[in-house]
Computed example of a mutant assay.
Amino acid sequence: MFLLKLYTFSFVLFSVMMYTNSKTTLRETVDQLDKMLRYSGWKNLNDLISITYYRKVYYLQKLIKIPTKRTKGGQKIRALTIYLGCTYSKVMNDLLLVIINVLKVCRKKFVEENDIKKGCICTEQLVNIISLLISPLATLLKDAMDALDLLHEIPMAYYKNIYKISPNLGKIGNILDNLNERTLSRNNISSYLWTLNTIEEFYQKIGGKLYNDTVLYCEFVTFNTSSLWKEWNIEYNAIINKNIKLGFFKFLKGQIKNYIKTIIVEKYFQLGFKYDPFLEETFIPISYKSFEIELDLKKIDEEPPIPIQIENH
């Protein structure tokens, strides 16, 4: 009983200390944050109108323009982290809607057209896109959000019931764990149908969670759209109508690859995040030099050092 009381007291004391320390953000952290916000990418985030946190509405332009006060540092970090989470949710939602539409095409090959060969190829290509493009991007965005959140004295990871965007991004990144439960085999067509069902159930569930986790915090310009899929279909049909031979999946992978490059440049590197390829970690530098910022942006615009392996065929 004494040990239990001691443990309880220690936990309460630790919580009080964390709460007290959270009132004032360290000067070094404030400087680190303000220097990060000098990156031009923050001014170009335009997927949201505002975010709401503890009944207070925050607008991004005000957050990045007003110098951070130490007494408001934690509040600002939290607001920016939520804003970033909303932005990344929109990115992943758009890509998940593309995946769901591709999945319908694959299933149609099996069920309606009874074209087993094309159905198998379609499913294999879909898994390839998820493993090489979608999953790594989700992991990268999660790491960026976590890196910003870690500037706060009490990161959101310490809470059980607050803003689950980061964990859900992690689940999207780990979907391969689900798919690896069964190996695709053309000698067992049911393995393909199982894979399609697993992808659909998983992404619909995650998509619903992303929406639920953002609805209380994020006011989007628009969220639930299939604009990417529609835009790419129109573009592909225009190419085919010109009698240019181009496989649908080759076209689709090219579109997703370019889209992801744009996301990584505009919503990762141009926000001041850095990637350590040796540790495979995202971090926020302690200090930035103005000339390094401009140099980095020019280098990024030419060819971003994307920490995602993308096939070129």
Rank of each mutant, 00 (worst) to 15 (best):
residue 1 M to K: 10
residue 4 L to F: 11
residue 6 L to D: 09
residue 6 L to E: 14
residue 12 V to D: 00
residue 13 L to E: 10
residue 14 F to W: 14
residue 19 Y to L: 15
residue 21 N to G: 03
residue 22 S to Y: 08
residue 25 T to I: 09
residue 27 R to A: 14
residue 29 T to M: 10
residue 31 D to G: 07
residue 31 D to C: 08
residue 34 D to K: 02
residue 39 Y to H: 15
residue 48 L to W: 05
residue 49 I to D: 12
residue 52 T to S: 13
residue 54 Y to D: 10
residue 55 R to I: 01
residue 55 R to F: 10
residue 56 K to L: 00
residue 60 L to R: 08
residue 75 Q to Y: 06
residue 75 Q to N: 12
residue 82 I to N: 01
residue 87 T to C: 12
residue 92 M to F: 04
residue 96 L to P: 00
residue 98 V to S: 03
residue 99 I to G: 01
residue 102 V to T: 13
residue 109 K to P: 03
residue 113 E to H: 12
residue 113 E to L: 15
residue 114 N to Q: 14
residue 115 D to G: 13
residue 120 C to K: 12
residue 122 C to P: 04
residue 125 Q to A: 03
residue 127 V to T: 09
residue 133 L to A: 07
residue 133 L to R: 13
residue 140 L to Q: 08
residue 140 L to K: 07
residue 141 L to V: 05
residue 141 L to M: 12
residue 141 L to C: 09
residue 146 D to G: 01
residue 146 D to V: 13
residue 150 L to V: 02
residue 153 E to T: 14
residue 154 I to P: 00
residue 155 P to C: 01
residue 161 N to P: 00
residue 164 K to D: 04
residue 164 K to E: 04
residue 166 S to D: 00
residue 169 L to I: 02
residue 178 N to G: 11
residue 180 N to F: 00
residue 183 T to E: 14
residue 191 S to N: 12
residue 191 S to M: 04
residue 192 Y to W: 13
residue 195 T to D: 09
residue 198 T to A: 12
residue 201 E to W: 03
residue 210 L to V: 01
residue 214 T to W: 01
residue 214 T to R: 02
residue 215 V to C: 11
residue 218 C to M: 05
residue 219 E to H: 11
residue 220 F to Y: 15
residue 220 F to C: 05
residue 223 F to W: 12
residue 231 E to Q: 11
residue 235 E to P: 00
residue 236 Y to K: 10
residue 236 Y to I: 08
residue 243 N to Q: 14
residue 248 F to V: 05
residue 251 F to I: 03
residue 251 F to Q: 03
residue 258 N to I: 06
residue 259 Y to G: 00
residue 264 I to W: 03
residue 267 K to M: 07
residue 268 Y to F: 15
residue 270 Q to I: 01
residue 272 G to K: 09
residue 276 D to T: 01
residue 279 L to H: 07
residue 280 E to F: 04
residue 281 E to P: 00
residue 286 I to R: 08
residue 287 S to D: 08
residue 290 S to V: 12
residue 300 I to M: 03
residue 304 P to W: 07
residue 306 I to N: 00
residue 308 I to Y: 12
residue 313 H to C: 02
